[in-house]
């Protein structure tokens, strides 16, 4: 089986963690060709060539691919599709934007958020906010799927494989990029961090949310948030963990002032160890916590920061 893996490339750089995890899923299916697309993607291509499991890297460079707008990237992938049985990508927002479009261009059904690969046609994926896990078997000739990275270990490294450039179809001109407002942070990436400290509505304000950041910095952790914290403006949207935000599975997840709604649990319940700090002993978060502490977070969180 021939597999095309769309690498996660942002601003010309390979996002190693997401791509390496999707590679592990891809390698189970066959020989993997990695596609690096962007306004500049050569450096990403060089990096991808050293990912264990890559047999070839394709580099597609064109201004139209610069911000990974769905129309142009989907058109590129569709133009390459003939040679592959599987087309995969890590389930990032970029890939979720692009791959369903690719699937429809190929008249196949996309398989989103694959959490386990059973065989060439059969995959597991969470549904109903992770309340159920479905095993689905695709009858389509080609399989187009996004890979939930928390379900797979990152692939290791190898001696670089061959890198080729591919022709890019003409730009569709359907949409134009205007601007990115990307948060620069010294903290580790939320989806690959070993420790995540998350805050919820219980923090009460953007200013108070700083105590979550302080604990995270003490631990070298990433910061997450519940939807309520994001909706209330205490935290930016890219910190949201959950059914419709990011899915994380760190070694340690510390939930502070988060009640534990099913939509939040969907994004963190595969964490190895979960700590919950909440003043309400009835809060559902305690049902899935390994260590629960009933306390006022305004006392407990700074104390924890001090004592660690």
């Amino acid at each position: 089986m021939a597999v095309l893996l769309l690498a996660e490339v942002t601003g010309g750089e390979l996002q190693l963690d997401a791509t390496a995890k999707a590679m592990t899923a891809a390698a189970k299916l066959g020989e993997v060709t990695v596609l690096c697309a962007g306004a500049s993607a050569a450096a990403a291509g060089e990096a991808a060539a050293t990912l264990a499991g890559a047999s070839k890297v394709l580099v597609a460079e064109d201004a139209s691919l610069g911000h990974r707008l769905a129309e142009d990237t989907a058109q590129l992938i569709a133009s390459l599709a003939e040679s592959y049985d599987h087309i995969l990508a890590p389930a990032t927002t970029d890939a979720k934007n692009i791959l369903p479009r690719v699937a429809a261009l190929l008249d196949v059904m996309v398989i989103s958020d694959v959490s386990a690969v059973i065989d060439a046609d059969t995959f597991e994926r969470p549904v109903y906010a992770g309340n159920a896990v479905q095993t689905v078997k695709s009858g389509d000739a080609k399989k187009v799927a996004t890979i939930r990275t928390t379900g797979f270990e990152a692939a290791g490294t190898q001696a670089a494989c061959a890198v080729e450039t591919v022709a890019v179809p003409g730009a569709t001109g359907l949409s134009d990029w205007v601007e990115d407002r990307l948060a620069a942070s010294d903290r580790p990436d939320l989806t690959s961090a070993k420790i995540v400290v998350s805050g919820g509505r219980g923090l009460g304000s953007e200013e108070s949310f700083a105590i979550i950041g302080a604990l995270a910095d003490k631990l070298g952790a990433a910061v997450g948030a519940s939807r309520a914290a994001v909706d209330s403006g205490y935290a930016p949207n890219d910190w949201q963990v959950g059914q419709t935000g990011k899915v994380v599975a760190p070694e340690l997840y510390i939930a502070c002032g988060i009640s534990g709604a099913i939509q939040h649990l969907a994004g963190m319940k595969d964490s190895k160890v979960i700590v919950a700090i909440n003043k309400d002993e009835e809060a559902p978060i305690f049902q899935i916590a390994d260590y629960g502490l009933v306390a006022d977070l305004f006392e407990a969180v700074p104390a924890l920061t001090e004592k660690l």
Partner: peptide
């Protein structure tokens, strides 16, 4: 196009414990 072969409960987490202090 996708046949649902099986729908299962997600793996349950082992029971945790409450701690009394920071």
């Amino acid at each position: 196009r996708l046949t649902v072969v099986k729908t299962a409960e997600p793996a349950a987490r082992a029971a945790g414990e409450m701690v009394g202090s920071v």
